[in-house]
Nucleic acid binder design. Structure first.
Lengths: 205, 205
DNA sequence: TTAAAAACTGAATTGTAATTCATTAATTGA
DNA sequence: TCAATTAATGAATTACAATTCAGTTTTTAA
């Protein structure tokens, strides 16, 4: 199959180390406040070395996001394509997602603030690619919801609207968890999220 | 009462013009990509003149956000304090908010991306003030929801969770509206939002 | 009318930080 | 072992843009 030389293995290790350091720094400082010098120091390389791996700060940033987004997408896609009732699949994806967030706190700090960086979605190529992948997730979700409607599990509302509502709630809970001074397992919010999304908040009379 | 000289009136006019221009530029470019030169040009003043009104780029930015947030808060507070059943008040605030967003598109582009700028909420004084005001809105909402629970209009869920869920959904719809290439009245989403928030998406059997 | 004061201007200053590149260190293969 | 060759370094270069300020224009009021 793949015969990777030590050279190549080392190259990839170093690359990963730089990405890891970048994740840390970007999460704390945000793109503009993060300095290449600081990332280099964190990664224990000289500043110039970063440029042997990434052609610019932007490239480093976007690559970082892109690779992680791909990772989640893979997981979600896998879960959503399993054969199970739509409602059940939604539940599982939600759990999966919150769990992933919990394990990638640094990354999600970046991800969440990126979501609203309109300016770039247009400009950069890699930026556009990322945006596409973010949208893809919503699409996937809405497909499952659509199926759920057909099968009579969900009300016949617009699936896109439903997907946006769910994602909005989830993001809001993630955001809250992120800034909360009191630590708690994010996963513990799954039930509340589902309760509200599925059954609403109004008392039935 | 207030005797404002022409001088003062003019000062305030110019200040407002600069804020307006800044709003426009910041909305398109975001804080870091926006250049003082560009804002000055947009406002039809020399670059140096901006500094007669605001002591720095940051000051200009935060002042801009702060004043608008105060404006919304005033409106919301007024509406929420009116005597009406909680559910009814929620409905009205939602309408109010979406209407306000529609009328302040540029500003909300800024506002939404600001919400996730962790870095600043801590650092800057004015920034902290803004964050406080953002949180205050959630608080207000959760108080109304709490009252709603007491009166049996809402299920006995955690009011904060409910507030976060609602705000999350709303933000998600705003975001979607913002980036949609097809224009539509945001206000048209009120019913969907309420339907989902109040009654959920699951089909009752 | 005019000189002093206030407002405005944009080119020059300044600080910052991404990127480069001459130099040094490490690795390779003969 | 020793010259290539490749990788790593961080000080110097360069680009950029916020802020300043000496000069210009406008307003004021005597």
């Amino acid at each position: 199959m793949e015969k990777v030389s030590r050279k190549e293995r080392e190259y990839l290790t170093h690359r990963k180390e730089i990405l890891k350091a970048a994740e840390k720094v970007f999460a704390v400082k945000g793109f503009f406040q993060a300095k290449m010098d600081e990332i280099a120091k964190e990664a224990e390389f000289g500043t110039g070395t970063l440029y042997r791996f990434f052609k610019s700060k932007e490239d480093l940033y976007f690559t970082l996001i892109d690779e992680k987004v791909q990772e989640i997408n893979r997981l979600v896609q896998e879960e959503l394509s399993k054969k199970a009732p739509p409602l059940e699949r939604i539940k599982r994806v939600l759990t999966l997602e919150l769990d992933f967030v919990e394990k990638n706190r640094d990354f999600f700090k970046i991800y969440i603030s990126e979501r609203s960086r309109f300016e770039w979605t247009v400009k950069d190529d890699l930026g556009k690619g990322i945006h596409q992948k973010m949208v893809a997730y919503i699409d996937l979700l809405s497909k499952v919801l659509k199926e759920g409607i057909r099968k009579g599990e969900f009300k016949p509302l617009d699936p896109m609207d439903m997907a946006h509502a769910l994602v909005g709630m989830v993001n809001s809970f993630i955001f809250e968890w992120m800034i909360s001074p009191v630590p708690y397992p994010l996963i513990s919010k799954v039930d509340t999220l589902l309760e509200i999304f599925l059954k609403g908040t109004q008392k039935r009379r």
